Simulated assay, not measured.
Amino acid sequence: MSLALKSSAKAPVERRKHRRVTVNLLGRYMLETRQEFPCQAIDMSPGGVLLRAPTVGRIGERVIVYLEHLGRIEGKITRIAPGGFAISIATTMRKRDKLAAQLTWLANRALLGLPEDRRHLRVVPRDPLTIVTLPDKTEVNARLIDVSLSGAAFHCDTRLERGMLILIGATQARVVRVSEGGVAAEFITPLTEDRFDENIVL
């Protein structure tokens, strides 16, 4: 991340269109040579990301990146940095808005008080709306925050209790955490990877 410099005639002008947030996301990337390497996202905005990476491509080279929580991102290298490089993200306005929402969630995750489950990667569903069925068969509307193979976090207006058995869509789960920021539930049977992406429907 660039450091603030004293004002001078030669100081670069900040031209970033999106506010960057500090992140710590592991992933992998592929250069045009089709070689893959591990990486770590250091800071990010809907328009770009700074990666810590062992191998650096050339300015303008196309890169495909897979990051935990966020999935696939494509872009071009715009800057070489110590220990890595920065890319500009090429995407549609709709996907850019979605990425902005995902980054907001990541930035505020600690404030929400939801548990960080690193056993499995998490995705933010393309369609977050779902139905949660309570033990008495009452159905309530909910909005998924994110989903992993082992569980899900969601918002709903109904007060749930820890240990409660529920259905999230058609998937049986047990409530493991309730806070002002949302509800975390663990699936009774973990999901399989063949149905696990941003198009997931529970």
Rank of each mutant, 00 (worst) to 15 (best):
V175I: 15
L134P: 04
G163K: 05
T138L: 02
I145M: 06
G151D: 04
E139K: 12
A153W: 00
D146Q: 12
R159K: 13
I145Q: 06
T171F: 02
D146S: 10
T133A: 00
T133P: 00
E161D: 14
D146Y: 03
T133E: 04
V176T: 14
S179V: 08
T138W: 01
V178C: 13
T133G: 00
G181Q: 08
L160H: 09
E139G: 06
D136P: 04
R159I: 11
Q172M: 13
A173G: 03
T133Q: 02
P135M: 09
C156I: 07
L134F: 07
I168D: 00
L167C: 10
V176N: 13
M164Q: 10
T171C: 04
N141T: 12
R143I: 09
R162T: 13
F154N: 06
L165K: 15
S179R: 09
R174H: 07
L165R: 15
H155D: 13
D157C: 10
P135S: 05
F154K: 09
G163Y: 10
G169I: 01
P135K: 10
I168K: 03
D136G: 02
D146V: 07
L149A: 13
A152E: 06
F154M: 11
D146K: 09
A153E: 05
M164H: 04
G151Q: 03
R162L: 05
H155Q: 14
R174G: 00
G163F: 09
S179G: 07
T171G: 01
Q172Y: 12
E161L: 13
M164W: 05
R162W: 01
V175P: 08
I166Q: 00
A173N: 04
A142G: 07
G181I: 03
K137Y: 10
L144I: 15
V176I: 14
F154T: 08
S148A: 12
T138I: 02
V140T: 03
C156P: 04
Q172L: 12
E139A: 12
T133Y: 02
D157I: 08
D157R: 15
G163H: 04
L134S: 03
F154D: 03
